[in-house]
Structure formats: structure tokens, C-alpha cells
């Protein structure tokens, strides 16, 4: 849950940089802070990433979003529901990627510490 909340809050904040890719950092941060391994980290980051988009929708005139997506979908030849889904999936995917990287970093860092400790015992 903590991981999820970190991703949602930092994800929303990072979206306001207007550049999408920084939301990767939300996943990384959550993974680094919570340190719960891949399963929890990736699931909570993905769901958190999806949820992080919702507040932005609420800041827009919701009634007009469907019409806009229908227009863009018609131009792009992509169903509007798929386009909408992609927004959530991409955001979730970016957070998830961050979580994978972050968890790896946690693990690598932990292994290094363990290795250092082991070296110390042996010495």
C-alpha cells in the first residue's frame, strides 16, 4: 500500500513536468523506499501508475473527453477506448519499468552490502 501511495502521489507530481518519462522515477522511488521485492513492487507500481492518471482526468471537463478521444480515434484509425486505455497502460508501464529497475538496484545494493559484510567477517 505504501508503495502504491508513493507511486500515485509522486506519479501525479511528475506528470506535471509535462514530460511523460519522469514518471519512471515514481516506480524507482517506491521500489527503493519500500524494498518489498519484484512482485509487490511491480504490481503496486503498475496499479499506482494507472491510478495516477485519474486526478488529471478530474481536472478536465470530463464530459468533453469522450468527444475528443472519439475525434482523435477517428483520425488515427484507433478505437477511442483503446486510446484511452493506452494512456493508463503507458503510465502504468512506465511506473512498472521504474519499479523493476528500482528493485534491481535495491537487490544489487543489498547484495553488495552482504558481500562487503561477508568480506569483513572473513578478513
Amino acid at each position: 500500500m505504501i508503495s502504491f501511495l508513493i507511486v500515485v502521489i509522486s506519479g501525479v507530481a511528475l506528470l506535471f513536468t509535462n514530460i511523460w518519462y519522469p514518471v519512471i522515477v515514481a516506480g524507482i522511488v517506491a521500489a527503493l523506499v519500500v524494498r518489498k521485492g519484484y512482485v509487490i513492487s511491480t504490481v503496486s507500481s503498475f496499479v499506482g501508475g494507472v491510478v495516477a492518471v485519474l486526478p488529471l482526468f478530474l481536472m478536465l471537463p470530463v464530459g468533453s473527453i469522450g468527444a475528443i478521444m472519439k475525434e482523435v480515434g477517428a483520425i488515427a484509425g484507433i478505437p477511442p477506448t483503446l486510446l484511452l486505455s493506452l494512456i493508463f497502460l503507458i503510465n502504468g508501464g512506465l511506473c512498472l519499468s521504474g519499479a523493476l529497475i528500482g528493485t534491481f538496484a535495491v537487490k544489487a545494493f543489498g547484495r553488495r552490502e552482504q558481500s562487503d559484510r561477508n568480506s569483513g567477517i572473513k578478513g
Binding site: L15, F16, N18, I19, W20, Y21, I24, V53, L56, F57, L60, P61, S64, I65, A67, I68, M69, V72, A76, L83, L86, I87, I90, N91, G93, L94, L96, S97, L100
Partner: peptide, 29 residues
């Protein structure tokens, strides 16, 4: 995953138009 999204954004306008804060969603205003 990041690479796929970056490549998709480089060769199509999809990522930029779907960006929740700068993409077409904002045109609903």
C-alpha cells in the same frame, strides 16, 4: 518497456498526443 515506449514516441505521435498533461486530453478544455 521504456525502449518500446520511446520508440513508439519517436516514430508515431502516439506518445505525445496521449501524454495526459500535454496531449489531446487537454483539448477537451
Amino acid at each position: 518497456i521504456i525502449a518500446i515506449i520511446i520508440i513508439m514516441g519517436s516514430f508515431t505521435p502516439l506518445v505525445s498526443i496521449l501524454n495526459p498533461t500535454t496531449g489531446v486530453l487537454q483539448n477537451s478544455r
